[in-house]
Simulated assay, not measured.
Amino acid sequence: MSARLPVRPAAPIADGMKLHRRRLRLGGRNHTVITLRPGTDARFSTNYFHDTWHVLSDWRGARLLGRLLWGLAFQRVPGTLVVIDLPFVDPNPFDASPGDPIVLIPSRLTPWSAAAARDLRRRLPLHGPGDGTVRWHTHGLDRLVAAGHKWQRLPTREWMDRVHGMVTFAAADALLRAHAYGVFTLGVGARHGMDYTDLAWQDGEVQVFSDYRARVSAARAARAQVLGGRALTPEAERLLWERGTAIRTAMARSHGAPVRA
């Protein structure tokens, strides 16, 4: 009889949550790379649709992403960035194409170059606990959300793109805080099980689904049935979406859950 591996409890997504810290030399500069711990049960994916890069998740993922953006706006160590690494990235919930790692950069603190991006991508996925654990503080975020704060975005610079195989978002501190608030509150009052907010005007977006994980599972099953290892063509993509919807509908009905479009 084989021994069972211990089941790790889900890491809490709250002020002071624990994250890993790594010191990496990227593009000739020293960087502090913050990553999620193995106990984190939030999951994400990415895709490119309507000329816009999307980060995809569920309500829990939105809370985590919001805290990552908020805390990043208050960092003081030059070269700091956050990476949502491959173990936390799913195939996308539409056609199950592979998702990309996600990189979050405070542009005030961390200059970013193609060389740095290339060096980082070569090292992913990162293994082991790195150089220690940090407590990620998000002072003020919960209080502002509870107060129903209305956030006004300031006209500062931001960008979002896929750089060396990583969906990358960079912004100044004021915009990091504004986007953190918008992402953190996704799903509050949402109808039809979906909500979204922009990142980097017209270039990026965060989109969340209440049944995100079911969509990923259905898309994976549909891809295996429709493609069977073959290339994705426009006709196959249409069939894949239809098959994925049928699988997800059957899954929802078997659990007595509402079917989302």
Results as ranks from 00 to 15, higher is better:
Pro129Ser: 06
Gly165Arg: 03
Ile13Leu: 06
Gly79Asn: 02
Arg253Cys: 11
Tyr48Ile: 10
Val206Phe: 01
Leu120Tyr: 02
Val83Asn: 00
Gln207Met: 10
Asp198Asn: 11
Leu109Met: 06
Val77Gln: 11
Arg135Trp: 12
Pro125Lys: 11
Ser45Thr: 13
His139Pro: 09
Ala171Leu: 02
Pro87Cys: 10
His50Ile: 04
Arg108Lys: 10
His192Ile: 14
Trp59Phe: 13
Glu235Cys: 00
Leu176Asp: 00
Val77Phe: 00
Asp15Ser: 06
Pro12Ser: 09
Arg143Ser: 12
Ser254Pro: 06
Arg162Cys: 15
Glu205Pro: 03
Met17Trp: 00
Ala147Thr: 07
Ala250Leu: 11
Arg4Ala: 15
Val33Trp: 01
Leu26Arg: 05
Ala115Pro: 09
Pro38Met: 09
Ala219Asn: 08
Trp70Thr: 04
Val206Ala: 02
Asp58His: 03
Gly228Trp: 05
Arg162Asp: 08
Phe88His: 01
Val259Thr: 04
Thr233Ser: 11
Asp161His: 14
Thr133Glu: 14
Thr80His: 04
Met251Thr: 13
Tyr212Pro: 01
Gly39Leu: 05
Ala116Phe: 02
Ser210Trp: 08
Thr245Ser: 14
Trp201Arg: 08
Leu65Asp: 04
Pro125Arg: 11
Val163Pro: 00
Ala115Met: 11
Ile84Asp: 00
Pro12Lys: 09
Asp131Trp: 08
Met1Cys: 12
Asp142Lys: 07
Thr40His: 03
Ala116Thr: 10
Ala42Leu: 02
Glu235Leu: 07
Ala146Cys: 05
Ala171Gln: 08
Ser113Tyr: 11
Gly204Tyr: 02
Asp85His: 00
Tyr212Thr: 00
Ser57Pro: 06
Thr46Ser: 07
Leu81Cys: 03
Gln207Arg: 11
Arg162Phe: 10
Arg223Val: 15
Leu65Met: 14
Ala116Cys: 05
Leu5Ala: 13
Phe44Cys: 03
Thr40Asp: 13
Gly193Glu: 09
Ala246Met: 07
Ala222Asn: 13
Gln152Thr: 15
Pro87Phe: 04
Trp151Ile: 14
Asp142Glu: 09
Lys18Ser: 13
Val83Lys: 01
Gln207Asn: 07
Trp201Thr: 07
Ala172Thr: 12
Asp195His: 03
Ala115Trp: 07
Asp85Pro: 01
Phe44Val: 03
Gly204Met: 05
Gly79Ser: 08
Leu5Arg: 11
Trp201Gln: 05
His255Val: 09
Arg8His: 09
Ser2Arg: 13
Gly187Asn: 07
Glu235His: 09
Val145Ala: 15
Ala73Thr: 02
Thr197Ala: 13
Val83Ser: 00
Asn47His: 14
Leu68Phe: 04
Gly128Asn: 08
Gln152Cys: 13
Asn92Tyr: 11
His31Pro: 03
Arg220Thr: 12
Arg67Glu: 06
Ala180Lys: 07
Asp95Gln: 06
Trp112His: 03
Arg157Gln: 07
Glu235Lys: 12
Phe74Tyr: 14
Arg220Pro: 00
Val259Leu: 12
Thr80Met: 01
